[in-house]
Amino acid sequence: MAGLAADNLTCIKRDRVLFTDLSFALLPGRLIYLRGPNGAGKTSLLRILTGLSAPDAGELSLDGQPLERQRDTFNQQLIYVGHKAGLNGALTAMENLRFWCAQHGAEFVPADTYRVLALLGLVGLEEVPVRMLSAGQQRRVALSRLWLKKATYWILDEPFTALDTDGIALLEKHMRQHVAQNGAIITTSHQPLSDLAGPMEELVLEYRL
């Protein structure tokens, strides 16, 4: 089966079972909207999907093969935007993105990067240390990765945090475009996704005691 499949995942944090026997598949051309109250395990699930943490039970597979054996292939096809922006405050937006592209094997074209930053409303802020930017602007710099690296799988953890309505609309349109181009997205968000984001499947995690 194509796509990223989760098979009977279980996650236990501090003796509390967050979820058990969770199975689903993230297929190219689909958007999964992961919902659930605080503490339900959304972030834990996303981190397990990226491979940053290991599930307590269950397995992940990519295109029908165990994910463990094709970590490198998967990483090339993955963009993860987490709670933490992954930007160093002392470096400028351009520097942060240049080094990130080099690490991730994405081609860095300065002209394209300026264009993406302009699209995200960061004109004139490209060479300012990121720590001087507002929370929303920092989030925009972090999200600009979604324009800079070609990857099938996007794993987004609360991507809309601190974004204004324009920013949210921009990101939702970009997500819709990505799905239309056979991309696969799993995202969490406390505010419902609007129609701009296109068709989606919902995955709901319950808070368990």
């Binding site: 990226t50 491979g51 940053l52 490198d72 990483n75 090339q76 993955l78 993860y80 987490g82 709670h83 933490k84 922006a85 992954g86 930007l87 160093n88 405050g89 990130w100 690490q103 991730h104 094997g105």
Partner: peptide
């Protein structure tokens, strides 16, 4: 320290290097 707290470390780990 900084890489851990600002999330750069997560991005390194997913970079394929």
């Amino acid at each position: 320290r900084d890489d851990f707290w600002d999330g750069s470390l997560e991005q390194y780990m997913l970079s394929g290097l």
